[in-house]
Deep mutational scan, measured.
Amino acid sequence: NQASVVANQLIPINTALTLVMMRAEVVTPMGIPAVDIPRLVSMQVNRAVPLGTTLMPDMVKGYA
């Protein structure tokens, strides 16, 4: 099973992602693959992402 990107903290809307905000976890359903974490750094979320939420492609501006 491939790990997905999960929020390590509450990420407010329009926040630029940093490594500290994300962790890799095997979850269902799968979200953004953990291998993409370096690519996500400095991209912004388009909604508030609660702690423990799996990041989906439509939550990150410019990802999809």
Rank of each mutant, 00 (worst) to 15 (best):
1 N>C: 06
1 N>S: 15
1 N>W: 10
2 Q>E: 15
2 Q>A: 15
2 Q>L: 09
2 Q>V: 14
2 Q>R: 03
3 A>I: 06
3 A>N: 13
3 A>K: 04
3 A>P: 13
3 A>S: 13
3 A>E: 15
4 S>Q: 02
4 S>I: 01
4 S>D: 01
4 S>G: 05
5 V>N: 01
5 V>T: 06
5 V>E: 01
6 V>W: 02
6 V>K: 06
7 A>G: 03
7 A>L: 04
7 A>C: 06
8 N>W: 07
8 N>P: 02
8 N>Q: 12
8 N>V: 10
8 N>F: 12
8 N>M: 12
9 Q>D: 15
9 Q>S: 14
9 Q>N: 09
10 L>G: 09
10 L>D: 13
10 L>K: 07
10 L>N: 13
11 I>A: 01
11 I>Q: 00
11 I>C: 04
11 I>S: 00
11 I>D: 00
12 P>H: 11
12 P>L: 12
12 P>D: 13
12 P>M: 08
12 P>V: 06
12 P>C: 07
12 P>K: 10
13 I>K: 07
13 I>L: 09
13 I>T: 13
13 I>C: 12
14 N>I: 02
14 N>H: 13
14 N>R: 09
14 N>D: 09
15 T>D: 04
15 T>Y: 07
15 T>N: 09
16 A>T: 07
16 A>F: 12
16 A>N: 05
16 A>R: 06
17 L>K: 00
17 L>I: 07
17 L>R: 00
17 L>W: 02
17 L>F: 02
18 T>H: 10
18 T>Q: 06
18 T>C: 05
19 L>W: 08
19 L>A: 08
19 L>F: 07
19 L>E: 04
19 L>M: 12
19 L>H: 07
19 L>I: 05
20 V>I: 14
20 V>H: 09
21 M>T: 03
21 M>C: 03
21 M>D: 03
21 M>Y: 10
21 M>H: 06
21 M>S: 06
22 M>W: 02
22 M>Y: 02
22 M>K: 00
22 M>I: 07
23 R>N: 04
23 R>W: 03
23 R>L: 05
23 R>H: 06
23 R>T: 04
23 R>Y: 03
24 A>T: 10
24 A>P: 12
25 E>H: 06
25 E>Q: 05
26 V>A: 12
26 V>W: 09
26 V>M: 14
26 V>P: 10
26 V>R: 03
26 V>N: 09
26 V>D: 15
27 V>Y: 03
27 V>W: 02
27 V>P: 01
27 V>M: 15
27 V>D: 02
27 V>Q: 14
28 T>Y: 06
28 T>R: 03
28 T>M: 06
28 T>K: 03
29 P>Q: 13
29 P>M: 12
29 P>C: 15
30 M>D: 15
30 M>V: 11
30 M>W: 07
31 G>R: 02
31 G>E: 01
31 G>Q: 02
31 G>N: 01
31 G>F: 02
32 I>G: 00
32 I>M: 03
32 I>P: 01
32 I>C: 04
32 I>T: 02
32 I>R: 00
33 P>H: 15
33 P>S: 15
34 A>H: 10
34 A>D: 15
34 A>K: 04
34 A>G: 12
34 A>T: 06
35 V>T: 15
35 V>D: 12
35 V>K: 05
35 V>Y: 07
35 V>H: 13
36 D>T: 06
36 D>R: 04
36 D>N: 08
36 D>A: 10
36 D>Y: 07
36 D>V: 04
36 D>G: 04
37 I>P: 00
37 I>A: 06
37 I>S: 04
37 I>Y: 02
37 I>F: 04
38 P>A: 13
38 P>T: 12
38 P>D: 07
39 R>E: 04
39 R>L: 13
39 R>T: 13
39 R>K: 13
39 R>V: 10
40 L>P: 00
40 L>H: 00
40 L>W: 02
40 L>V: 09
40 L>R: 00
41 V>W: 05
41 V>Q: 08
41 V>R: 05
42 S>F: 14
42 S>L: 07
42 S>P: 03
42 S>C: 15
42 S>H: 10
42 S>N: 06
42 S>G: 11
42 S>R: 14
42 S>V: 03
42 S>A: 15
42 S>D: 05
43 M>G: 04
44 Q>I: 13
44 Q>C: 09
44 Q>D: 05
44 Q>L: 08
44 Q>G: 05
44 Q>S: 15
45 V>A: 07
45 V>G: 01
45 V>W: 02
45 V>P: 03
45 V>L: 12
46 N>T: 14
46 N>D: 09
46 N>I: 09
46 N>W: 15
46 N>G: 14
46 N>F: 12
47 R>W: 07
47 R>D: 10
47 R>N: 07
47 R>P: 02
48 A>I: 11
48 A>N: 08
48 A>D: 15
48 A>E: 11
48 A>R: 12
48 A>V: 08
48 A>W: 07
48 A>F: 09
48 A>G: 09
49 V>E: 01
49 V>Q: 02
49 V>N: 01
49 V>Y: 02
49 V>M: 06
49 V>H: 02
49 V>G: 01
50 P>N: 14
50 P>E: 14
50 P>K: 12
50 P>H: 08
50 P>T: 13
50 P>F: 15
50 P>C: 06
51 L>G: 14
51 L>A: 13
51 L>Y: 13
51 L>M: 15
51 L>K: 11
51 L>N: 09
52 G>S: 13
52 G>A: 12
52 G>H: 11
52 G>K: 10
53 T>A: 15
53 T>L: 15
53 T>D: 14
53 T>W: 14
53 T>V: 13
53 T>Y: 14
54 T>R: 04
54 T>E: 02
54 T>C: 04
54 T>P: 11
54 T>V: 10
54 T>H: 03
54 T>N: 02
55 L>W: 01
55 L>D: 00
55 L>T: 01
55 L>E: 01
55 L>P: 01
55 L>S: 00
55 L>C: 02
56 M>C: 11
57 P>V: 12
58 D>P: 08
58 D>G: 11
58 D>S: 10
58 D>W: 07
58 D>V: 12
59 M>S: 07
59 M>R: 03
59 M>L: 07
59 M>I: 10
60 V>E: 02
60 V>D: 02
60 V>C: 03
60 V>Q: 01
60 V>A: 02
60 V>R: 01
61 K>N: 13
61 K>E: 11
61 K>D: 06
61 K>A: 12
61 K>S: 13
61 K>C: 08
61 K>F: 08
61 K>T: 11
61 K>Y: 10
62 G>R: 06
62 G>Y: 12
62 G>V: 05
62 G>P: 08
62 G>A: 14
63 Y>N: 05
64 A>P: 09
64 A>W: 03
64 A>Y: 03
64 A>L: 15
64 A>F: 07
